[in-house]
Nucleic acid binder design. Structure first.
Lengths: 144, 144
DNA sequence: ATGTTTGCAAATAGTTTGCATCCAG
DNA sequence: CTGGATGCAAACTATTTGCAAACAT
């Protein structure tokens, strides 16, 4: 924990970010939580001992952390729902620039086994490999 | 296309859903689009030839379709963003009932190769296997 | 000192809900 | 006919933005 906070400060400095109490609190909350919390969840926890912190700050800080690669944004990135009528087992590549989602098929991916510990504990109804990166279009008309 | 619409009508009947022009239009739009559209995108397309259709109907219809398994909801399911401070390569299981996301590790999954066609075309920066289903807690206190 | 960060308030976007009307079966 | 489906309006939730005040460096 002490260790992780040192690393945290170092990374902030490397990116020219000030180490504020709010940022510390948010980062601590994140690494102490096993729940992949949302901004609202984090805000509510921190509020208990730091009643003045605003939700905006939590939101902005999380985005900043994600931009410098300190954390990941996962699952339902706040974007609108998107729908897929293709019920065949398939996989997705998502472009982090333009948001396009491209289907692909792979026998190797399809045949992945569900790990024993999970199969015993959960009912598994879906399986998909998600790749992300930059698509060919965004790669050519790169802005900077 | 004709074929798919027959299947569509059949599935609607099986689930006691009426086959309305709106539902037909929405389903057609979905299967003709390669873009994994959002509700707003679908609404805007249909509007061009069916100006009276409301966005609510599109939203409700898509949810209904997903409930009967006719389509999938993917990527950013409209839920709030969630954050993950764990930067080690790992994978997720997500409970479709309670929304909990559980990390797991798997050497087999980690070592998946990126398919040749994708590697040549895109820059791949992330890879993750997403499983979904029902977690142990939700399995025991099942509501119905 | 000074430029970044914060908190507040207001704006925006996506989604959901209540209700009266409409229409597929 | 009749119950489910639709359209409208309003509510709600998540997120973003502008700006003045506060604070880390």
């Amino acid at each position: 924990m002490e260790e992780e906070l040192k690393v945290f400060e170092k990374i902030c400095h490397e990116h020219g970010l000030k180490v504020t109490p709010q940022r510390m609190a948010i980062y601590k909350e994140l690494i102490n939580s096993r729940e992949h919390p949302s901004a609202v969840m984090i805000h509510e926890c921190i509020r208990k001992y730091y009643p003045n912190i605003s939700l905006d700050t939590v939101n902005r800080t999380l985005i900043t952390f994600a931009e410098i690669g300190l954390i990941d944004i996962i699952e339902g990135r706040g974007d609108p729902k998107r729908f897929d009528p293709n019920l065949r087992l398939h996989h997705h590549f998502r472009c982090i620039r333009c948001g396009e989602i491209i289907d692909f098929y792979s026998k190797e991916y399809d045949s992945l086994k569900i790990p024993e510990e999970l199969r015993k504990k959960f009912i598994i109804t879906g399986k998909r490999v998600n790749l992300e990166g930059v698509c060919d279009k965004c790669r050519s008309n790169k802005q900077e």
